[in-house]
Design a protein around this nucleic acid. Structure first.
Lengths: 341, 341
DNA sequence: GTCGTTGATTACAACGTTGTACTCGTTGAG
DNA sequence: CTCAACGAGTACAACGTTGTAATCAACGAC
């Protein structure tokens, strides 16, 4: 059951424990001859280092936490898969946490209190604000995903939400749409990502000389299908309903399209729809969804690299902002030509 | 940075280290007076036990691994969320692994080799077979999810796939459908779950006296939207295409419905569709999908309980089979009345 | 030939926890 | 009054690893 220990390998190879340790870690120079002998002993005994002992000694566990508001949201599931892959490539493991969007839980995790042995935290905050984070006690290396606020003392990985939103809006404008609704703006304006996207949206409207109708931006609580559906119902009850919707998540778009369908509204002919996230189901929905596709792999790799860098060189280096790419993927929901898959 | 240690608490409370340890763990009787003094010191110093040291000493880490074929598949994401919640309730954490359906990876994880400090493994196997598992070296407690094979030496948590499939099929038969296709049968028949579902399907057909047409059961590789789409295309090319499809996953159903839509086929009028898994997007698809809904929460709780039981009482107890509930949820894709949400 | 110098290896002491075996009063039975 | 039994607490040695400082041979340089 319990595997071989450093001591066993050392005895078999006829060297000291420390030499074996040196060979295993490869940090210290070991004579070629000894190294080979040790490696053979390691192979013969199938030695596996004991992670806990190592952690106890070094203070590193090789585990980083990834905290997302909701793992069942496809965007976060897809992102989590990329983070796991990126971490594995770099030899460490990922502990996934589901905060449920609870601020207290987010804070707890940001402080590294979720599990005592994690080395660092990747957090996708929903409602965490700077004042809460300002005086967090335990200083676990922290990287924030997809949040714009400059005030939080941590590294950020994000895409240029403003530019992406502008591009999406311009696409709708080019189709000739003028009454463009936005679904995904929370009432309290605290969520930096949505503020950026809203900014990009307004910039595009302004540049095209299209007036902005605030009634086309209903308050939205979460980024779920149900919220998208609810917002769409409100919008369709207007005297002059929108001819296009820009949704801040594909799930919102999915809910919105569903309601449009129920009202007999054809997408894209009578209502063009753009989403955000490029989740997989988007490509098979009826109709398939035009969406802003953040480069999730790049986000994951940047984030893992950033947190590992903080962990290994625990300098109080200034906090960085890392920008990943994105792409507007045009599909049926904004195509006037007939469906083609 | 580093928190208080047992030693610090002991000094503050004026007792020995061991007494503090006893209070923390609550296993040994401690006089009420001392206990209070220790508890106060713990609170004052905000003491948090060091997980690694504890693990090193006891051999337990409090971490269990959950390995799924593909985290981005919504069913597994939803299941993972339930497992995380169930584990948290019981005071342990979950390490999620994505096997990518790779048999070697599945074996590695089943042997507990994915990370050295895990106490036990929950594995949702895709292609693992008994011969591989028979002689796994390291004996980590293992619980298999959703697999029927009796031969694998491990506990199983599953639903009655055969009964569920029969029920789904009976539902389609009651709608008057007679040419019912099945999407989700892999060519090699090795995956026990699909064998059970196929069995339930055939039982229902037989009981209703409906002949079985093997051409309506195309080979399917994976449980993805793309595979569902491909299978549907094959089926629609037949001289006498099906009037209903029973898909072994909601994703397959999603792909199939997409293709039906492209061919101008109306669901449910010309093609009734039933899925399996009850993933969330199913409820907002157009049309919404009738599906077999396994009780994911119950599956998660049974599995976590089972693995914890094996960990704590490491008896070589006989392997158990635990059955969770399911439910057939009828939605638009098999409803002849007009859509109502 | 002696003496630093270098490079490879080792002994030893941590890291923070828990199990075992022990001490030390206190209590109750004979 | 003596002694066993008991309850509460403690000292010490692990668990397997790594950092530090020491050791030791080999090797040129003077």
């Amino acid at each position: 059951m319990a595997g071989a220990r450093l001591k066993d390998v050392a005895e078999r190879a006829g060297v000291s424990i420390k030499t074996v340790s040196n060979v295993v870690r490869g940090e210290v120079r070991v004579a070629e001859q000894t190294r080979e002998r040790v490696l053979r002993a390691i192979a013969e005994l199938d030695y596996q280092p004991n992670a806990s002992a190592r952690h106890l000694r070094t203070g590193r566990s090789g585990i980083i936490a990834l905290a997302v508001p909701e793992l069942v949201a496809p965007y976060f599931a897809e992102l989590a898969a990329e983070v796991i892959a990126a971490a594995k490539k770099r030899g460490c493991t990922v502990l996934i946490e589901d905060t449920g969007g609870d601020p207290a839980e987010e804070l707890r995790i940001a402080c590294g209190l979720s599990d005592p042995l994690i080395d660092g935290v990747l957090l996708s905050p929903l409602c965490l604000d700077e004042t809460m984070l300002a005086n967090r006690e335990r200083r676990v290396p922290l990287v924030l995903l997809g949040e714009q606020s400059y005030k939080i003392p941590a590294d950020h990985v994000l895409i240029d939400n403003s530019a992406a939103a502008r591009e999406a809006t311009e696409h709708l404008l080019q189709l000739g749409r003028r009454r463009i609704a936005v679904i995904g703006q929370p009432s309290d304006r605290s969520h930096a990502t949505t503020v950026q996207r809203m900014h990009g949206f307004l910039t595009a409207l302004h540049a095209a000389g299209v007036p902005h109708d605030p009634r086309l931006v209903p308050d939205t609580r979460e980024f779920t299908r149900a919220d998208g559906a609810a917002a769409m119902r409100v919008m369709l009850a207007l005297d002059d309903p929108p001819d296009a919707v820009f949704c801040f998540s594909d799930l919102l778009a999915s809910g919105a399209m569903r309601v449009a369908h129920e009202h007999g509204l054809r997408v894209p002919q009578e209502l063009a729809v753009v989403g955000f996230d490029d989740i997989q189901e988007t490509r098979y929905s009826v109709p398939s969804l035009t969406t802003v596709s953040p480069d999730k792999r790049e986000i994951a790799e940047l984030a893992v690299d950033a947190v590992l860098h903080r962990i290994t060189t625990d300098a109080e280096a200034p906090h960085t902002r890392l920008t990943a790419g994105y792409e507007l993927v045009v599909r049926e929901s904004t195509r006037t030509s007939p469906p083609t898959a």
